[in-house]
Design a protein around this nucleic acid. Structure first.
Length: 277
DNA sequence: AAGACAATCAACCGCCCTGAA
DNA sequence: ATTCAGGGCGGTTGATTGTCT
C-alpha cells in the first residue's frame, strides 16, 4: 500500500505545514481485511438500534475490533438496506456514462443520482468495464471525445491523471426528485451552496478546458448557476426560491443531448435507454 | 491438473471540508 | 478567529476469482 502516487505525495508535502492529520483511530489491535458475517451482523444490529454516526467511537460501542472508518465504509457500501446488489443494468450504465461525461470522476455525485448504488461501486464499474468499453470504441474515457482528436498524452488510463482540483458547485444534499414522468432513474436535483459563488465561474471556465462538456454547455450551465446564485443570495431564509427544476432540467438536457440537439429543457422524462454507447 | 496471468471489487489510505466548541 | 473531531471523498491496493495455456 505504500506506493503512494506522486500526487498524493505532492499533496501531503503541500499540507505538511497546514495541519497535522490525526489518524481516525489507533490501528493497533484492530482487525483489517474482509468482514465476516458475524461482524456484519453486529454492525447492522448496532446501527439499526443506535443509528448511524459517531463512527470513530462506534466500534467500541458496538464491540467491534474495527476502525471507525472501516465500519462506516462497510455500512455505506455494503450493509445499508437501501442498496441494490447485483449487476448494473443497461439503463444505469447509460446514466453513469452520461453523468461521467458531465461530472468527471465525481463518483459520489454520480452515485447520488443512481438510487441504490454507491460511489465505490460505480467507480469500480467504471474502471473495470466502462472505461475499457469506451477505449475499445475509440473514445477517450477521460474526455469522452474521440481518441484520435485527443492529445496523445491524454490517452491513458482514466485514473492516471487526476482531474484538476476544482471547486465544483457543491451539492448540499443528494435528494432525488420524485418525478411522475420517469421510470426508475432519478433526475438531477442540484442545490448550490452560496459560499462557492466566487469560485463558480473559475470552475465553469475550467470545465470548458477539461473537455468534460462543451463551451456551449458550460455557458448554459453558467446561466443556471448564476440564476441559482442570485436566488440564494436574495432569499437565504425563504423556503424555496431555488431553480431546482430549472437546473434539473438543464442537466437533464445535457444528458439528453446525445439524442439530438432539440432536447427540451422542460422535459423531465428520461429517454429510452438503448445500447447506443 | 497446475501454474501464470488478468479481471474484479471490497477495503484501505490520506487528504479535505464542515460545523461545533 | 482558531482548533479539532467527525465525516466524506477520490485514488489505490491487494486478495480472490476467473480464464488461459
Amino acid at each position: 500500500m505504500k506506493k503512494a502516487s506522486s500526487l498524493m505525495e505532492a499533496k501531503a508535502k503541500g499540507n505538511e505545514k497546514k495541519k497535522i492529520i490525526t489518524p481516525c483511530c489507533n490501528k493497533v489491535g484492530l482487525k483489517r481485511g474482509p468482514w465476516t458475517r458475524e461482524e456484519d451482523e453486529v454492525l447492522s444490529n448496532f446501527i439499526k438500534k443506535e443509528g448511524e454516526g459517531r463512527w470513530r467511537t462506534l466500534p467500541k460501542r458496538a464491540g467491534l475490533l474495527r476502525c471507525g472508518k472501516s465500519c462506516r465504509l462497510r455500512w455505506i457500501n455494503y450493509l445499508r438496506p437501501s442498496l441494490k446488489h447485483g449487476h448494473i443494468a443497461p439503463d444505469e450504465e447509460d446514466l453513469i456514462l452520461r453523468l461521467h461525461r458531465l461530472l468527471g470522476n465525481r463518483w459520489s455525485l454520480i452515485a447520488g443520482r443512481i438510487p441504490g448504488r454507491t460511489d465505490n461501486e460505480i467507480k469500480n464499474y467504471w474502471n473495470t468495464h466502462l472505461s475499457k468499453k469506451l477505449v475499445s470504441q475509440g473514445i477517450d474515457p477521460r474526455t469522452h471525445k474521440p481518441l484520435i482528436n485527443s492529445c496523445s498524452n491524454s490517452i491513458s488510463t482514466p485514473l492516471s491523471n487526476h482531474s484538476p482540483k476544482l471547486i465544483p458547485p457543491t451539492p448540499l444534499n443528494h435528494h432525488p426528485i420524485p418525478s411522475p414522468h420517469h421510470h426508475h432513474i432519478n433526475i438531477f436535483n442540484q442545490d448550490f451552496d452560496p459560499k462557492i459563488t466566487t469560485t463558480t465561474h473559475d470552475y465553469l471556465d475550467q470545465q470548458a478546458t477539461t473537455a468534460n462538456v462543451t463551451n456551449d454547455e458550460v455557458s448554459r450551465f453558467g446561466l443556471i448557476v448564476r440564476s441559482n446564485e442570485q436566488n440564494l443570495l436574495c432569499s437565504k431564509n425563504e423556503d424555496h426560491c431555488s431553480d431546482d427544476d430549472v437546473f434539473s432540467s438543464f442537466l437533464n438536457s445535457l444528458i439528453n443531448d446525445d439524442h439530438g440537439p432539440s432536447a427540451c429543457d422542460n422535459d423531465l422524462s428520461m429517454p429510452a435507454y438503448g445500447n447506443h454507447v
